[in-house]
């Protein structure tokens, strides 16, 4: 039996295409990546600024271990809070981040903070301290203390440079119950201060780190944890979920139609070829 040449070529092409999805520009191998990150769920309503709001129950937390701050003096070798759970919600306009952690006592000086890099330049997680071979950028710190009952929006670029910003864009609210703190920070997704505030863009990952102070008073009257003596993490990732994007489904449908059409044409040619 002889086949027509065009049938041959088309059949060959389909055969190779079926053997090697890789030859069609498709991914061949992939590997797991670090996937622990805080993802802010997109909602349509106003973001909850209250730690007890029911909206938080629908959000899965990400948990991050904390270390005593041993990176620079004054150090601390043991801290109360061993890990922090983080959840986040945004509505495209405002973003809310809730930290949740176990602390056996409620104290006026209990405090918590989140830190972000600002802009494109990398910043060291320790207050954006200078790096020998990399030109670093500033960090933006959102700080909450129980007795103040509010957030302070701060900037640092190196030790000893931490200061409250002129524009205070962050709000915070804490709630203590059953040996556990829940602290919610809220801020507009973007602000006017590109130099000092981190700016969020749905879909883009930014770096985030955490700090917690157990403000318990010790027998001598000193606070157990204060200043640089705190529980900290290094950098993790934070992202606002992007709005649903349906174009990949469109591309997939188009690809299916093209592949089916291609198949149809090839098989018709094969049939014609073999019938002569």
């Amino acid at each position: 039996m002889r086949m027509r040449k065009s049938g041959h070529r088309a059949g060959l092409l389909l055969f190779i295409g079926m053997l090697f999805p890789g030859t069609m520009g498709l991914p061949v191998a992939g590997w797991a990546q670090e996937s622990v990150a805080v993802r802010a769920t997109l909602i349509a309503d106003a973001v909850p600024d209250d730690p007890t709001a029911s909206a938080w129950n629908a959000i899965a937390p990400s948990e991050f271990p904390l270390s005593p701050q041993v990176h620079w003096p004054t150090r601390i070798l043991q801290v109360t809070v061993q890990s922090v759970k983080a959840r986040a919600i945004h509505n495209g306009k405002d973003v809310a981040i809730m930290l949740e952690y176990a602390d056996p006592t409620e104290d006026p000086d209990d405090a918590a903070a989140v830190e972000f890099m600002v802009g494109e330049k990398k910043a060291h997680f320790a207050h954006g301290q200078p790096m020998a071979q990399v030109e670093g950028g500033p960090v933006n710190i959102w700080f909450w203390k129980n007795k103040d009952g509010k957030a302070v929006d701060m900037t640092a670029k190196g030790f000893g440079t931490l200061k409250a910003q002129d524009d205070q864009d962050v709000k915070a609210k804490g709630a203590y119950a059953n040996g556990e703190w829940k602290v919610v920070f809220t801020r507009p997704v973007t602000t006017a201060n590109n130099e000092t505030d981190t700016q969020f863009k749905p879909g883009d990952f930014v770096n985030i780190s955490f700090a917690v102070w157990d403000g318990k008073k010790e027998a001598g009257g000193d606070l157990k944890e204060k200043g640089s003596q705190k529980a900290i993490s290094s950098w993790w990732y934070f992202r606002l979920d992007p709005a649903p994007n349906y174009t990949p489904y469109g591309y997939a449908a188009l690809a299916i139609a093209l592949a089916a059409g291609f198949q149809f044409v090839v098989i018709r040619k094969l049939k014609k070829g073999s019938s002569t």
């Binding site: 079926m18 069609m24 520009g25 498709l26 879909g203 990949p248 591309y251 997939a252 188009l254 089916a260």
Partner: peptide, 27 residues
């Protein structure tokens, strides 16, 4: 089965290569 699967595989591969990544950037 093959004739149904092939377009579906191409569609799935196209989807997975165009869908935005949900993972933090590789380091």
């Amino acid at each position: 089965g093959l004739l149904v699967l092939f377009p579906l595989l191409v569609g799935w591969q196209t989807y997975s290569s165009t869908v935005p990544s949900d993972h933090p950037p590789a380091e």
